[in-house]
C-alpha cells in the first residue's frame, strides 16, 4: 500500500534569502557540503522561533496537525545544528508547500479579503468601503484566537496560561 500523500503546507511569507554560507573554516577548507532546508522547515522556524508562537498555533497557521508541525520543526533544528556544527552551507529550497497572500478583516461588515497583485496595504474594505480593516495572518477559516485570553484554551498545551520570560513578536505586521 502506498503511504498517505503529504498535505500541502501553507507558507505565509517566502524567505528573503535562498541560503546561507559559512565562513572562516579552522582548517582552511573552502566548502564542506550543503544542508537542504525545506521551505516548510523554514516556515516552522519562522513561526516557532522568530515569532515565538506555540507549536499548536504555528501548526494551525501552516494547515497541519500539531504533531506534524513538531516533526517538521525538529527536523529543521537538526538540519540547522548540522550546518553549524559541521560548517555546512544552508540551502532553503523544496518542500510540499503553497504560498498564501496576506489576508485582512473588515470590522464593519465582518468580511475577510486578500490583496493580490497590489503592493502595499489596502486602505478600504472592498465590500463596504469602511476603513476599519485589520491585518490577518491566518486564513479566514481559522478564526484568530487571542493567546492571552483564558477563554481560548488550547487542547494541546493551554494557550490560556501565562507564559513567563518570553515575549512574542507581533506576527500580524
Amino acid at each position: 500500500m502506498s503511504p498517505r500523500p503529504v498535505k500541502m503546507r501553507r507558507i505565509g511569507k517566502p524567505p528573503v534569502i535562498s541560503g546561507m554560507k559559512p565562513y572562516g573554516f579552522a582548517d582552511n577548507r573552502t566548502s564542506s557540503g550543503k544542508v537542504f532546508l525545506n521551505l516548510e522547515e523554514y516556515e516552522s522556524l519562522r513561526l516557532c522561533d522568530f515569532y515565538m508562537l506555540h507549536q499548536c498555533q504555528a501548526a494551525e497557521m501552516m494547515g497541519v496537525s500539531r504533531p506534524t508541525l513538531t516533526r517538521i520543526y525538529s527536523s529543521a533544528r537538526m538540519k540547522i545544528a548540522e550546518a553549524i556544527v559541521e560548517g555546512k552551507q544552508i540551502v532553503i529550497e523544496g518542500g510540499k508547500i503553497y504560498f498564501d497572500s496576506s489576508w485582512y478583516f473588515c470590522n464593519d461588515c465582518g468580511c475577510f479579503f486578500n490583496n493580490p497583485g497590489n503592493k502595499g496595504n489596502p486602505e478600504k474594505c472592498p465590500l463596504c468601503g469602511s476603513t476599519m480593516i485589520v491585518n490577518y495572518d491566518l486564513l479566514p477559516e481559522m478564526i484568530y484566537k487571542d493567546p492571552a485570553s483564558p477563554d481560548n484554551f488550547c487542547y494541546y498545551h493551554g494557550w490560556g496560561r501565562k507564559r513567563v520570560g518570553k515575549r512574542r513578536r507581533d506576527f500580524r505586521t
Partner: peptide, 8 residues
C-alpha cells in the same frame, strides 16, 4: 490577481 472577499 483576482481579489477574494470571504463573507461568512
Amino acid at each position: 490577481k483576482i481579489q477574494m472577499v470571504v463573507l461568512k
